[in-house]
Amino acid sequence: MPTFNESIQLTLNGEPYAIAPGLTAADLVDQLGLSGRRIAVEINEQIVPKSQLATTPLADSDQVEVVHAIGGG
């Protein structure tokens, strides 16, 4: 049975965020309710292309950024 210690600790958009082990970047996007939205994902300062989200595992201490377009000049 998984214990708390087995969860994966990410930093997601600058905040601590725990996920279950074995998840991919696509799982995380899905968990955040952002599937199908126009977003971009970066892990440890490297872009993860949409086509690779499902094959990109998440590891402890990963720094994940999820961004979108907002108004600006």
């Binding site: 600058g14 955040l32 952002l34 961004v67 907002i70 108004g71």
Partner: peptide, 10 residues
């Protein structure tokens, strides 16, 4: 048209 890129408000 220009726009900015920001963290998604989760």
């Amino acid at each position: 048209v220009t726009f900015a890129v920001r963290r998604t408000n989760l």
